[in-house]
Design a protein around this nucleic acid. Structure first.
Length: 792
DNA sequence: TTCAACCACTT
DNA sequence: ACCCTTGGTTGAA
């Protein structure tokens, strides 16, 4: 027997336990095995439990049965359960299915927790933990983590990475594009022409054997490169060691579409490896945002394997962290039934729809404005007020009444959700402090930023999860409690800033925009923030002070501003832009750049007067861009529009542009799935739009349609000075007379619009269009459910 | 011309 | 494997 030190790399079931891969500090991989018997539990009448035992014994199932007691989270006490241990872990899902079908009325626990996660939790280890392992040959006698998931600056194993991609432009091979295969490893690039497919398989085999990479990072590996390699390998009868574990074949999972964050997401088919990871950049959830650093951080925190983390939403990560808390406490984890979300009745909607606090902002251009944001407001509320499915309405103690609702919250024991979130919030704030302190050239900075971003997404989803019917630890009352506290905290904060002589221009769920005239000097924001923290118990930060800031009017009701369309320039000249065309994914690049270009010019203005002074230059810039657009000389790739399909092409009832393009592609044999993105160009004539993949040669674009889009984008920027559509058309298209010759700037000092600033408060009796679902009353305080985005 | 249904998007 | 609203377009009345 000897002791091995190394990082936990991969875990999956095999035989009477788990295969465990460890990478040592020299980069050497070790293939080990650990005996492991996962368990699940059934609760109910003894008679029925006895018949389950009998059924399992009769079938000769490899199980260990015993009666025991476990804690039920919601009852807060031990209950009697039947423990079913499965000696061949891989059989657990199938055995559970048999038992649940046999006695569907029993209550089941711990039945659907992924096996790798159960194993690491049982052993007190986690993916990428640095471990000490006593082993006897391949067999693990003892494994122990020398590292903690809460470590900030942890060493990671020296991983050998092989990159796989196709030559040529980045095009989806699922749409018919085919290229040569390019493989990069340790600084060498190998080019495999697609015509020589046998040589390709032999070449890849050689590279896998020679370099023995730990990770394959691909672009379109899940839906094209790996399946194609496997197909060629079968065709030529040349085995391809994609797996490090030669006893396993590559695991294929089918493509699917699902709803997440209010929209449909398409997840392509997956190809997962054993003893090696395959990560596909094109088939990853938010990986562009937090990258491999973020994936490894979530794997360490949640116990889920990195190959899984890369492909699932962060909601799965936070859910796994809650499961981990439960297992550590010895609390039963309820089996998560997959009930379809039922349609809510009108009344239910009215009750559930009282969400975050949103103020209708004061429209127009403002100066001397500061923005204050609560950091990670909703998760902080859950921790600070102990909100969890089992603490809301608990009868174990007198409890603390929730504002507005009155329901008591248990104060004598920490809830499961707060217990899960507290260390995460703490870790995130430590990274935040480090990111601020470290010099820009510090090599650790990039990884810290990405881990910080991964935490952000974990925290964002935890609130939605509380109100999600299918969540294991979800409960609508807890969700509403968070909202109630959120509104309370924001209103209290509003009072505090108003007592200090500020005027609140806008409130939005977790942020406030406050104004104080210049005459009183620069306000002491630090002491204000401290006072708010002391009063509310939550941390609030200064997002920045604006040179100028514009809240935009509604397009349908121009007298009223809308809550989430605004832009402004901070004191350092940086811009904050929300809700306008430049932020939308379906805005063509040319129009996005026009809008941002105008804002960049305007951001040089030091205050509202500076904004107005910069307007002629911004207008001239937009005018020149519009003239190029109308002359037809803009490159088509600058005008590509992207849309995400929400349904299958044949399911569209309205012939929208996107539906037309989807039909075009479908007609050429391209299979499109809900959630997939499509690129197209607007073209003149009855065709209206053509798919990007079907454009050949120089195709003219629809100048009129694009001009309309451009004018609308310019209108958003100029609306704060009261410019209407006809004025803007005159400025941008008028060819003579207004300011002189075409393209001429207005002379300095010319009044080109009245800033709405002077008009003051918008009358609060002006109606905004009522929400379509319900005819709700509205006042200057509009109550609405909103997801929280902790400050980045 | 009006308006409801539909669709995609944002935070 | 997350909640919902707003704004714009389409096509029938």
């Amino acid at each position: 027997m000897n002791t091995l030190f190394g990082w936990l790399f991969d875990v999956y079931p095999s035989g009477d336990g788990m295969t465990v891969w460890v990478i040592d500090p020299d980069g050497q991989s070790h293939h080990l095995h650990d005996t492991f018997t996962p368990t699940f539990y059934a609760h109910g009448p003894r008679q029925e439990l006895r018949s389950v035992c009998q059924m399992l014994r009769n079938r000769g199932a490899p199980v260990t049965l015993r009666r025991t007691e476990r804690i039920d989270l919601f009852l807060d006490r031990h209950i009697e359960v039947l423990e079913i241990g499965v000696r061949i872990p891989d059989l657990l899902p199938r055995l559970f299915r048999q038992v649940a079908d046999f006695r569907p009325n029993l209550t089941y626990y711990d039945a659907d927790i992924s096996l790798p996660q159960r194993y690491v939790l049982r052993r007190g280890i986690f993916p990428l933990a640095y471990c000490s392992i006593d082993r006897d040959g391949r067999h693990i006698q003892r494994i122990e983590a020398l590292d903690s998931p809460w470590e900030i600056d942890y060493p990671l194993p020296p991983l050998r990475t092989m990159n796989l991609r196709l030559s040529g432009e980045m095009q989806n091979p699922g749409r018919g594009y085919r290229g040569d295969l390019l493989v990069e490893i340790e600084g060498n690039t190998f080019h495999f022409p697609r015509a020589h497919s046998r040589r390709l398989v032999l070449g890849i085999r050689h590279l896998l054997e020679h370099y023995d990479p730990d990770v394959l990072i691909s672009t379109y590996g899940d839906n094209y490169i790996l399946p194609r390699l496997l197909e060629l390998s079968r065709h030529y009868g040349i085995p391809l060691p994609l797996n490090r574990d030669r006893g396993k074949s590559v695991l294929r999972k089918s493509a699917s579409s699902y709803s997440s964050y209010g929209r449909v997401v398409f997840r392509n088919e997956q190809h997962l490896l054993f003893g090696r990871w395959h990560l596909d950049r094109q088939n990853a959830f938010l990986a562009n945002d937090y990258g491999v650093d973020g994936i490894l951080e979530i794997a360490r925190l949640s116990g889920l394997p990195p190959q899984t983390v890369a492909r699932v939403s962060t909601g799965t990560g936070i859910s796994a962290m809650q499961v981990a808390t439960a297992l550590r406490r010895g609390v039963l984890v309820p089996w998560q039934k997959r009930q379809p979300e039922t349609l809510k009745s009108g009344l239910d909607l009215l009750v559930a729809d009282k969400g975050g606090l949103v103020y209708t902002p004061i429209a127009g251009l403002h100066e001397h404005v500061a923005e204050l944001d609560f950091t990670a407001m909703y998760p902080s509320i859950m921790v600070h007020f102990n909100i969890s499915p089992e603490t809301v309405g608990a009868k174990c103690c007198e409890g603390e009444p929730i504002p507005e609702l009155g329901t008591p919250i248990c104060r004598h024991r920490q809830g499961l959700v707060p217990e899960t979130l507290e260390p995460l919030l703490e870790k995130r704030s430590r990274y935040k402090a480090l990111i601020r302190e470290l010099p820009e050239d510090d090599p650790r900075l990039e990884a810290y930023r990405r881990r910080y971003s991964a935490h952000k997404w974990l925290l964002v989803t935890c609130f939605g999860y509380l109100g999600y019917k299918n969540a294991r630890f979800g409960r609508i009352e807890a969700h509403e409690a968070v909202n109630a506290y959120g509104r309370e905290v924001l209103l209290r904060t509003k009072e505090i800033v108003e007592e200090r002589g500020f005027r609140v221009l806008h409130l939005y769920v977790d942020g406030l925009w406050i104004h104080k005239p210049e005459a009183s000097g620069r306000p002491d924001y630090d002491s204000l923030l401290n006072e708010i923290h002391a009063e509310t118990g939550l941390h609030i930060g200064l997002e920045g002070v604006y040179r100028w800031l514009a809240f935009l009017p509604s397009r349908t009701e121009p007298r009223v501003a809308v809550a989430n369309r605004y832009f402004g320039a901070f004191e350092d000249g940086s811009l904050k832009v929300r809700g306008i065309e430049a932020r939308r994914r379906d805005t063509p690049r040319y129009i996005k750049e026009t809008q941002l270009g105008m804002l960049e010019i305007l951001s040089r203005g030091r205050d509202a007067a500076g904004f107005c002074a910069a307007l002629p230059e911004a207008i001239a810039f937009a005018r020149q861009r519009l003239l190029s657009l109308q002359a037809g000389v803009v490159q088509a790739d600058q005008l590509v529009i992207t849309h995400r399909l929400s349904r299958r092409p044949e399911e569209y009832t309205v012939r929208t542009v996107a539906a037309r393009v989807a039909h075009q592609l479908a007609a050429t044999g391209v299979e499109l799935h809900p959630g997939e993105r499509m690129n197209f160009l607007l073209v003149p004539g009855p065709e209206k739009a053509r798919a990007w993949e079907l454009l050949e040669g120089r195709v003219p674009y629809d100048r009129e349609a694009y001009s309309k889009l451009m004018l609308r984008a310019v209108e958003s920027i100029l609306a704060p000075v009261g410019a209407d559509r006809s004025t803007i058309e005159m400025w941008l298209l008028g060819n003579a007379g207004y300011w002189g010759p075409p393209g001429a700037l207005p002379p300095p000092g010319v009044d080109i619009g009245t800033p709405l600033l002077a008009r003051g408060r918008v009358p609060s009796q002006v109606g905004i269009r009522a929400p379509s679902a319900l005819n709700r009353q509205w006042s200057d305080l509009v109550l609405r459910r909103e997801a929280l985005l902790p400050a980045a």
